[in-house]
Design a binder for these strands. Structure first.
Lengths: 189, 189
DNA sequence: GTCTATACACTGATAGAC
DNA sequence: GTCTATCAGTGTATAGAC
């Protein structure tokens, strides 16, 4: 895998997470990444749409992989999920609330315009929901409820990230995490 | 209140709800609204930033007013909230999932760039959360829990709107609504 | 209050040399 | 693979006539 390609993709992901799809220019991506300008359309012949699609998919995979890693050691699913969300909250604080959800913004911005990006967002969310669902399954929750709850959790967390980012206060997300924890304790998993 | 000013504000609100802040141009707003072009900077001397700030505040007020109206007749708070959210879900279906949250996208896009817009978003969310909190209070919930639950509900609903919009399926939001209903039934309000 | 015209930066994208 | 130069279009914003 080429280094220039990786740098461009990583920078695009970070900038779009902070400023959104339309708020991030290709020139800005090139300058920030330090990658050679001629490389952009060489590695991403379909331009910005392709770049965003790949950035979203990568972001979804990265988060779900990280979730699986960080929660592997904790068999208590409720506890594991809360711990992970607290980690996300702390990361938001450490990054001036610019991080948290690469997908949310791009998903909202581009529904009306790009089928391709929309499909990438759907895949990204699906991967993420599956990771949470699997953790609930491993805790002994039945399949139907696990799928339902995983979707619920992702929705609440996305909302919590939005509020935390808007109010610049990660405690909104932490309260969501606590609530999810209480909710899951009922299932004794 | 001038008609041209209102038309510009309304159109800006609708377009930004669909395409986001950076995805919506001032020329597009003028053309779509049919308002005279010379009026934009006459009524909004601070340009796009002012326009977005006012659009957000108005959107927050509109939604919270509508919530208070539609839920006034139903004394059961849990039922009232669910009914309202089902109405939002139906409206999303009727508008090709372009509606649902004027604030979310703009809030996320502009945190890094505009203090003014960010404050408008905070106010908008606060107004909205208060409307839900008041309904819970009127149902007999104690103040601390009502404030907490209102924030939780808004977060879950925002997340539900994001998923519904991304997957083009309003049932994501309806499932959230059902879950909130179950959750509130525990409080017997 | 509304009009036209326009300034100037920046956008995504392409061409052709090396 | 990477470079430079450049395209046409659009972005926000302003000036000055009416």
């Amino acid at each position: 895998m080429s280094s220039a390609r990786e740098k461009i993709l990583k920078t695009a992901s970070e900038l779009m997470e902070k400023q959104g799809y339309h708020g991030t220019g290709l020139n800005e991506i090139i300058q920030t990444s330090g990658a050679p300008k001629g490389s952009l359309y060489y590695y991403f012949p379909d331009g910005k749409e392709q770049l965003a699609s790949e950035a979203i998919l990568q972001a979804g995979k990265t988060v779900s992989d990280r979730f699986r890693e960080r929660t592997a050691a904790e068999p208590n699913a409720a506890q594991a999920i809360r711990d992970f969300l607290y980690m996300v909250a702390q990361r938001m604080e450490e990054t001036n609330f610019y991080t948290g959800s690469t997908m949310t913004m791009i998903a909202m911005e581009t529904v009306a315009n790009s089928k391709r990006i929309n499909q990438a967002c759907q895949q990204g969310y699906t991967i993420l929901i599956e990771a949470f669902r699997d953790k609930l399954l491993s805790g002994g929750m039945d399949a139907t409820r696990a799928g339902d709850m995983a979707g619920m959790i992702i929705a609440a967390v996305e909302g919590g990230i939005i509020l935390s980012r808007t109010y610049q206060d990660a405690n909104h997300l932490r309260r969501i995490a606590d609530h999810i924890f209480q909710m899951l304790r009922v299932d004794k998993i």
